[in-house]
């Protein structure tokens, strides 16, 4: 089958109620309906999920690796953004 007829799709699986869909990988399929069926066959063979999303890969806008410096490095020096300076009362238990 010609690959240009089968664009790439990103697959998201929700493993159980209450959890969010997680990205698990990608696949080729002719359209959304078949992408969903292929996702079922490729990514949920072993009872991994109860819900599936497929998204055309070209619908995703991704950050450019070149921008990594200005996008992400500035946060490395801002420890005060981590909530580690608060005393947690014992009654709260594990957080």
């Amino acid at each position: 089958m010609n690959l240009k007829d089968t664009p790439l799709w990103e697959v998201f699986v929700r493993s159980k109620n209450g959890l969010s869909h997680q990205h698990v990988g990608s696949l080729h399929a002719v359209d959304a309906t078949m992408a969903l069926q292929n996702a079922r066959d490729v990514y949920t063979r072993r009872a991994e999920g109860i819900s599936l999303w497929v998204v055309p890969s070209n619908a995703i806008t991704a950050s450019d690796p070149v921008d990594r410096g200005e996008f992400f490095e500035p946060t490395a020096s801002k420890v005060y953004r981590h909530p580690t300076f608060y005393e947690i009362p014992d009654e709260v238990g594990h957080m």
């Binding site: 696949l27 399929a29 292929n38």
Partner: peptide, 12 residues
Amino acid sequence: GPMLEEDLALSN
């Protein structure tokens, strides 16, 4: 199979 995805589907 005609493609990896369908190969798995057919085996399923």
